[in-house]
């Protein structure tokens, strides 16, 4: 779990440093070219979220496999 916490912390840090710099520049960034960047962010979050969950399932499975080999 520890490595995921690090990833989340990095993501949050990026988000907060962006928004802390200037809220208006964040808006400018996302409002540019017809708000298409909102869609890209949303699509990225959906894919990253599913990826992280699948990765967690994968690591659970790996643990089971390891136990089986040890037995």
């Amino acid at each position: 779990m520890k490595k995921y916490n690090a990833v989340f912390a990095c993501l949050l840090l990026v988000l907060f440093t962006n928004s802390a710099a200037a809220s208006s520049s964040l808006e400018e960034y996302f409002y540019a070219s017809g708000k298409i960047k909102v869609v890209i962010t949303v699509a990225a979050i959906v894919l990253i979220g599913l990826f992280v969950y699948l990765q967690r399932l994968d690591s659970r499975l790996k643990k089971l496999e390891k136990n089986k080999i040890e037995k």
Binding site: E27, F30, Y31, K35, V38, T41, V42, I45, V46, G49, L50, Y53
Partner: peptide, 18 residues
Amino acid sequence: LIFCILGLITGSIWARFT
């Protein structure tokens, strides 16, 4: 619950910019 969390986060971002 995973889909609920994803829905909440994506909805929150969409709401921020609309």
